[in-house]
């Protein structure tokens, strides 16, 4: 089995699965009807991308597990999602800022994956890149609008940024697996995307009149599964419940 490619697909698919779950929690509770539609649409795209990434992971693994088996029958320590996407929704500002921090990374990553040496990875990236370009436009505009809105919206967005920025660094982590998939031309080293990310982030925060925290200290442990947040276990408890309670059923 191609362990590196398998784990890489889990990293991609678990991020979209966990973030899609979080975003879908907003259903029917958004600040305005247009946001209900946009959030459901974003969650839908993310779940669709999950089906592709985890589907490929299952194919690479070759052990008979499909995307659903991987999504619904793994425990938290086998997940490879970054801590950023596991964070609870908080207020709408925290949700949209989390989305922006992720979208900005994902757009850069997918742009490189289009040229992956693995044709299947490239095909998924081509499809997902179009959706993520739209997500990024929307999350970026909303972060700018709320940062540069009223005093209250500005204060809330600054609090969201202070709360979430420590989870940004993990997106650019590097381990043996990253080095292997990079050497084989499957995916870029995440660290190689950092300069472009930082430039885009600085420009967005400037427009949003928000200040990036001084410290670049970063939490980590999600993308390698060594230390997830406490939140992930609860999220999976809810998400996996039917499959766990009725293991013989087909849905």
């Amino acid at each position: 089995m191609d362990q590196a490619l398998f784990e890489f697909c889990l990293r991609m698919g678990d991020n979209t699965l966990v973030l899609g779950h979080r975003v879908s929690e907003w259903c029917g509770h958004a600040p305005v009807l247009e946001e209900d539609i946009a959030l459901a649409n974003t969650a839908l795209d993310l779940i669709g991308q999950t089906q592709l990434w985890l589907g490929l992971a299952g194919e690479v693994e070759g052990a008979g597990r499909d995307a659903d088996a991987l999504a619904f029958r793994r425990d938290a320590w086998d997940f490879r999602s970054v801590l950023l996407v596991e964070q609870p929704n908080g207020d709408f500002g925290q949700t949209i800022l989390r989305q922006y921090l992720f979208d900005q990374y994902q757009a850069l990553m997918l742009a490189e994956l289009v040229a992956s040496s693995d044709a299947r990875v490239s095909a998924i990236a081509q499809k997902a890149a179009k959706e993520v370009a739209y997500h990024l436009d929307r999350s970026r505009d909303t972060v700018v609008g709320l940062g540069d809105g009223t005093d209250e919206s500005h204060t809330r967005m600054q609090a969201a940024l202070d709360r979430l920025y420590p989870f940004v660094g993990e997106l650019f982590g590097e381990d043996d697996l990253d080095r292997e998939v990079a050497a084989r031309g499957i995916a870029p080293l995440p660290a190689s995307l950092r300069a472009a990310y930082d430039a885009a982030l600085a420009a967005t925060m400037d427009e949003a009149t928000l200040a990036l925290p001084d410290s670049r200290w970063s939490q980590s442990g999600g993308r390698d599964g060594t230390r997830h947040s406490e939140h992930l276990g609860h999220l999976l408890t809810e998400m996996q419940w039917l499959q766990r309670a009725y293991p013989d059923a087909r849905w």
Binding site: A30, P31, V32, E35, D91, F92, G93, T142, G145, L146, G149, T150, E152, S153, H154, R156
Partner: peptide, 9 residues
């Protein structure tokens, strides 16, 4: 809860 979002935008 959404009032600040609508007002901000």
């Amino acid at each position: 809860d959404g009032a600040w979002v609508r007002e901000g935008l």
